[in-house]
Design a protein around this nucleic acid. Structure first.
Lengths: 254, 254
DNA sequence: TAAATAGTGTCTTTAAGACATTATCGA
DNA sequence: TCGATAATGTCTTAAAGACACTATTTA
C-alpha cells in the first residue's frame, strides 16, 4: 500500500480488482518434470487445462489461499500441506488476462515428492499430472506462469537445498541427482555430484540402518534425509551450454 | 486467475480488493545505499515516511503503474523512466496491512544512478533520499518491503550484471566496485574485482577516448559502459562470513 | 558369469583469494 | 618529492570437471 493516497478517498471510488492465486505444483516422476493441471468446467476456456488456483477469501493472505486451494485440489492431508515447499513466484497483472473482469493473480510454485494421482474431492475431480514440457496451450496466461515457474525452480536448485523438496523423507543420492537432471534437462557426473552434495554442510545427512535397493538391480544405495541448511555455498552451478545454440530464454529470472 | 471458478459467479460477489504498487527506489550516494521515501500527508500513518507508490488504474498493468508513480515522485523524464531497471519483488497480501481496507500491494525495486534531489511536482513535494540503513519505522509494512528489496538486490548482484544500473552511462571500475561494496556492506579486493569484471564477457565494455579523473587525486581511471550481458557466469559471490556471528537473515530470498 | 548401479580415488583445469609491484595523476 | 588512486602480475588455494577404478547387488 501506499503513500500518496488521495485525499478523503472512498474505497469504492477505486477500481475493485479480484485477486486470485495460481499454483504451479511440480513433482518429478519417471525422470520427467510433471505439473498438476485441472480441466476447466466452464467458460472462459472451458475444456482447456489450467493451473489450479482460486480467489482469495475476504480476510485471507495469498499464501493461505494457496495452501487451501492445494489441499482442495490434491487431497493432501494438512500435515503434508503445511510442510511442503511453497514459494511466491510473481504477480500477473495484465488488464486483459481474464476476459471476464479485472483479475490480478499471485502465482506460487510448489514442490512435492512423487505422489499417487490426485484424489479429487470437489474441484479436484479433473486434476491430473502432466509432463511439464508437453502441456498444450493452457487457459489464460498460464503458459507464461508455468514457464516462469520452471525457470525459477531451475535457478533455485543452483544456490539452495530446495531439491530435497522433490524427494521423499528418505532418499538416495541417485534420486537427488535425478531431480537436478530432470529439472535442468542435463546429465551430471555422478562422482562429482556426490562429492559436491556431501561436502555441502547441512544439505543432506546420512540415515542410520540398512540401505535400500534402488530398482532391483545394482548395488543398494545409502539413504539420506534433508539437512538443516537452506542455502548452498558455493552453489551447484548448471553446466554451461558451450554450444552456439542457446536453448533457453536468456536472462534467468530468480 | 484461476481454474475452478465458481459456477455462474458475479464479479461483485467476490471480495473486491484494492491493488497498489510500492516502490523501493535505490541509489548509491557517497558510498551509502539510499532509498527514496515520501512523507505521508494524511492518515493512516500521517507524518510517517513511506515508500512511494499508489493505486493501479482500472486498466493499467502493475509495471506501468510503477513507472507512472516513479515519474510523478522523482520528476524524471520519460527517457530515464523507460530505461531504468525496474524489477518486481513480491506481493504483500496480509489482510491487516492497511487499516482502511483490504489492499494487496505489488512491490517493485528500482535502481538509479545518483541523481539530484527529487524535484517534486504534486505528490513528490515531500520526497527525499534516505540512507537505507537508517530509516525510522516506516508506514504500513514498508520496513519489511524495504528489507526484502535490499536482500534481493544484494543477491542479484552476485549472478547478474545489474550493478551497472546504479552507475551513470560511463563509469569507472572503481565506481562499479563501490556499488558492490555499498550494497553488500563489505570491502572487496580491487585487483581481483577488476580481473573478474573484465573477464566476464559482456559485463562492461571499454569506452574510447581519454580517461577521466576520479576525485582530483590519483591516477585517472579508464571509463566503461554496460555491456550486452544480463547474467554473470560464473557468479561474483559475496565473501563468506566465516565468523560465528551471522549478521544477516539466514536464507537469501532471490 | 554379465549387467547394472553405488561408491572411491586421482589428475587436470578453472577460478578465486592474497598479496607485491608498477603507473600516473595532483599538490 | 609524497600521497592517492589505477592498473598489472604472480603465487597459493579451493573447487569443479573428467574419468579410471572398485564394490555389491540381481539375473
Amino acid at each position: 500500500m501506499s503513500a500518496p493516497a488521495p485525499e478523503g478517498y472512498d474505497p469504492h471510488a477505486y477500481a475493485p480488482f479480484a485477486v486470485t492465486v495460481d499454483l504451479a505444483v511440480f513433482t518429478v516422476r519417471e525422470a520427467r518434470l510433471h505439473v498438476l493441471l485441472v480441466e476447466r468446467g466452464q467458460e472462459p476456456h472451458r475444456g482447456r487445462w489450467a493451473l489450479p488456483g482460486g480467489f482469495l477469501l475476504p480476510r485471507e493472505a495469498a499464501e493461505d489461499a494457496a495452501r487451501r486451494e492445494l489441499a482442495e485440489e490434491t487431497g493432501l492431508g494438512p500435515g503434508a500441506i503445511g510442510a511442503l515447499h511453497l514459494e511466491q513466484l510473481r504477480t500477473y497483472t495484465d488488464p486483459d488476462r481474464d476476459p471476464r473482469m479485472r483479475v490480478v493473480s499471485v502465482a506460487y510454485a510448489a514442490l512435492l515428492p512423487d505422489l499417487p494421482e490426485p484424489r479429487g474431492g470437489g474441484d479436484a475431480a479433473s486434476a491430473r499430472w502432466w509432463d511439464a514440457g508437453s502441456t498444450g496451450p493452457l487457459a489464460f496466461d498460464h503458459d507464461t506462469i508455468l514457464a516462469d515457474a520452471h525457470d525459477r525452480i531451475g535457478a533455485k536448485l543452483e544456490y539452495s537445498c530446495l531439491a530435497t523438496a522433490f524427494c521423499p523423507a528418505e532418499f538416495t543420492l541417485g534420486e537427488l541427482q535425478q531431480v537436478y537432471e530432470t529439472v535442468w534437462g542435463v546429465e551430471l557426473d555422478r562422482p562429482n555430484f556426490r562429492r559436491k552434495v556431501l561436502s555441502a554442510p547441512g544439505f543432506v545427512q546420512p540415515v542410520d540402518g540398512p540401505p535400500r535397493r534402488t530398482g532391483g538391480r545394482g548395488k543398494p544405495a545409502a539413504l539420506y534425509r534433508a539437512g538443516d541448511a537452506t542455502a548452498l555455498h558455493p552453489p551447484l552451478l548448471r553446466p554451461q551450454r558451450t554450444d552456439a545454440s542457446p536453448s533457453g530464454p536468456e536472462g534467468r529470472d530468480r
